[in-house]
């Protein structure tokens, strides 16, 4: 990475499609690849891998679809997952370990432990979640470098 790139930062953007299980995880895998190429510390890569995966899967399973945006700056990585609804009714409840509204079908595939949001929060340095029921959800996570 040359000085210019360093100063302006790098932005990655991924479309995430509803119910597309076969591609779920692809955005996260791509992000990991880029971070590795940039020589980011492996413990940070691991944390971002966990967080991006959980965010991506939630958009696939629980939402109408959305996107994930990654901003890599000299001192931090900022990851935002934003979807087009339906939003979360009770965020405090959704954040509890073990709470899940996943369908039986999805649970049979191993999703729905109710650990995704807690995993995201635990993995990053700053965690923000905003949701408007009927509209959509935005999760923002910051990882310090």
């Amino acid at each position: 990475m040359d000085e210019k790139e360093k100063n302006t930062g790098i932005k990655l953007e991924y479309e995430i499609i509803k119910d597309d299980f076969s591609r779920a995880g692809e955005a996260s895998s791509n992000i990991k690849r880029v971070l590795r190429q940039l020589g980011i510390d492996s413990s940070v890569i691991r944390k971002t891998a966990i967080a991006t995966y959980e965010a991506e899967i939630n958009v696939v399973i629980h939402s109408e679809g959305g996107k994930m945006v990654v901003n890599i700056e000299p001192d931090k990585i900022e990851i935002t997952a934003k979807d087009n609804g339906p939003g979360i009714k009770d965020i405090d409840q959704a954040m509890q370990k073990g709470f899940s509204t996943a369908s039986q079908k999805v649970r049979e595939l191993g999703f729905g432990a109710g650990m995704g949001l807690p995993n995201m929060k635990r993995s990053c340095d700053e965690f923000y979640i905003e949701s408007e029921f009927g509209k959509g959800t935005t999760v923002k996570m910051i990882f310090k470098l």
Binding site: F21, A24, G25, S28, S29, R46, I50, Y53, G110
Partner: peptide, 17 residues
């Protein structure tokens, strides 16, 4: 060790090394 055999297990294994 897992009984899950769909594509997502590959992403998980790869993301977690």
């Amino acid at each position: 060790i897992t009984v899950q055999t769909h594509m997502n297990i590959v992403a998980i294994a790869s993301l977690l090394n």
